[in-house]
C-alpha cells in the first residue's frame, strides 16, 4: 500500500550548482575530470575512428588524414582539427593516468589522505605536461 509507506529521506548526488560552489580537493578534481574526459572520448569516438580508418586504409586516405590537419576537413579549418585533437590528447592522457592511479589504489589498498592528494597532483601535472609536449609537436613548434 503506497499510502502506508513511510516517507523516507532521499539521498541523491549533490547538484551541479552545489558542486561548482565547492572548493574541490585535488583528488576530487581528478575524479570528476576522469569522468568528463571519458565522456569526451566516447563523444568523439567516430572522429577518432575516422582518423584511424583514413590513416591506415591506403596511401590516398593517409594523405586525406594528413591534410585534415593542414587544409581542414569539410567546413572545419585545419587549426580547429588540431584543437580537437589537442583536447583528445589531454582527455586520453588524463583518463589513462588517472585510471592507473585508481588501479594502483585498488591493488595496494594503501592510501592516506596525503598520498591521495600528492598522486592527484602528479596525475594532473603529468597529463598537462605531456599534453603541452605533444600539443607543441601537433602545432609544429618543434
Amino acid at each position: 500500500m503506497a499510502n502506508t509507506l513511510k516517507q523516507r529521506p532521499e539521498y541523491r548526488n549533490i547538484h551541479i550548482t552545489q558542486i561548482l560552489a565547492y572548493r574541490m580537493p585535488l583528488a576530487g578534481l581528478v575524479s570528476i575530470l576522469h569522468r568528463i574526459s571519458g565522456a569526451l572520448l566516447i563523444l568523439l569516438l567516430p572522429f577518432v575512428i575516422w582518423l584511424f580508418d583514413n590513416s591506415l586504409t591506403s596511401e590516398i586516405t593517409f594523405d586525406r588524414f594528413a591534410s585534415a590537419f593542414t587544409s581542414g576537413l569539410g567546413v572545419l579549418p585545419g587549426w580547429f582539427i588540431k584543437l580537437v585533437c589537442l583536447g583528445l590528447i589531454w582527455a586520453y592522457l588524463h583518463h589513462l593516468i588517472a585510471g592507473l592511479r585508481f588501479l594502483w589504489m585498488d591493488v595496494t589498498h594503501k592510501m592516506s589522505k596525503e598520498q591521495g592528494r600528492s598522486s592527484a597532483a602528479i596525475t594532473l601535472a603529468l597529463s598537462l605536461l605531456l599534453t603541452v609536449a605533444l600539443g607543441a609537436k601537433l602545432f609544429g613548434l618543434y
Binding site: 566516447i42 569516438l45 567516430p46 575512428i49 584511424f52 580508418d53 591506415l56 586504409t57
Partner: peptide, 14 residues
C-alpha cells in the same frame, strides 16, 4: 547503438 556502431566500424578498419 553508438558504441556498437563505432566498434563495428573500427573492426572493419583492421
Amino acid at each position: 547503438v553508438w558504441l556498437v556502431g563505432c566498434a563495428g566500424w573500427a573492426v572493419q578498419v583492421i
